[in-house]
């Protein structure tokens, strides 16, 4: 804003005093330079460069990773999308939000543009898979930051979080949060090694017909690998897939490793394990007989990502695997 007013003033001034025009230009350049170092920054996004100035205060997040990064950076957004299969934000992030209630902007695949407009945001943090049409609408409301689409990889979240952090003008806080995750992961890895816990690991979601194997490139799978577990997906997932199709019960032995993390979108993970245990094909697996099945919260493990989610997952891993 400062740049624009300066520009306007110099122009009107230069119209009157032609001689001082050069001085006015210099003034403008200087002020732009000052603003540039302190505030304005150009972000490389999936839809080209986006210019953002200052520290946005009215932030809307349309992606769970963006919500996580914002909260980790100390910003409470005005609105956010729900977690997969839920009607509110994920439980783990609610704990960080405390009393603050976020307005719900729909689900990540079906964003409620009117709800976004109602918040009058000055920054929108959107998911990498945002469609072109939606970008056109959202970017008219406020600068919209969409991370570059990358092939599914378990550490995409770091680049995304850094981008969101830069948009929020809180680069240092995000860098700190990411480093804290690295430290914590190293700590858990060391503890697991000391306790001699490890081996092949599968992350699955249990469906009524059988398990869906989650990709080893998933966020949570990356953390499992980082603490020293050998995460596998049995080669059951195609190039771009996040999870396999529901596996036939005849092929359950393909997920029979040393550890089985059973994610469920239901609140009660134990209920999912009980449901799975009704199937004799499940109970005969070695991993089940050794009692190495770990029920985990699917909202956190298969839907969320970001530095706070990483901490929560590492807590889960520690609680489940360490005696």
């Amino acid at each position: 804003m400062r740049v624009k007013t300066t520009l306007f003033k110099t122009r009107s001034m230069s119209a009157i005093f032609i001689k001082s025009g050069c001085l006015g230009m210099l003034c403008m350049l200087l002020s732009a330079l000052v603003a540039g170092t302190a505030q304005a920054r150009t972000l490389e996004t999936a839809f080209g460069d986006v210019d953002i100035e200052g520290t946005p205060e009215r932030v809307v997040t349309l992606y769970e990773g963006a919500l996580d990064a914002a909260v980790a950076a100390g910003v409470t957004p005005l609105g956010a999308v729900t977690t997969r299969g839920g009607d509110n934000v994920a439980g783990y992030i609610e704990a960080h939000l405390g009393e603050n209630l976020l307005a719900i902007m729909g689900v990540v695949r079906e964003i409620n543009i009117e709800a976004v407009l109602a918040q009058q945001p000055d920054l929108i943090l959107a998911p990498a898979q945002l469609s072109d049409e939606q970008y056109q609408l959202l970017s008219r409301i406020a600068p919209t930051v969409v991370p570059l689409t990358q092939p599914l990889a378990s550490d995409n979240w770091k680049d995304e979080a850094r981008l969101y952090g830069e948009a929020l003008n809180r680069q240092a806080a995000i860098a700190e949060a990411i480093e804290a995750v690295e430290d914590r992961a190293a700590e858990v890895a060391e503890a697991l090694e000391k306790a001699d816990v490890g081996g092949s690991t599968f992350l699955v979601r249990w469906m009524p017909g059988g398990p869906m194997v989650m990709s080893e490139n998933l966020f949570a799978a990356g953390l499992l690998a980082q603490v020293g577990l050998d995460v596998q997906d049995g080669g059951l997932i195609g190039e771009r897939g996040v999870h396999s199709d529901v596996l036939s019960l005849e092929n359950l032995s393909q997920v029979d490793g040393d550890w089985l993390f059973l994610a469920t979108l239901n609140e009660d993970g134990q209920a999912a394990v009980d449901a799975a245990k009704q199937s004799s094909a499940f109970t005969r697996l070695n991993v089940v007989q050794q009692d190495h099945v770990v029920p985990v919260d699917g909202q956190l493990w298969t839907s969320a990502n970001g530095p706070l989610a990483a901490q929560a997952i590492l807590d889960d891993i520690e609680a489940a695997l360490l005696p």
Binding site: G85, D87, P208, G209, G210, L249, L265, E267, Q278
Partner: peptide, 20 residues
């Protein structure tokens, strides 16, 4: 109730798999 979706999906198209 989206959480029930996985359980209900079975009731949209039938299957013999996993029945006891």
């Amino acid at each position: 109730d989206q959480r029930a979706a996985d359980e209900i999906r079975f009731w949209v198209i039938g299957s013999l798999a996993g029945r006891r």
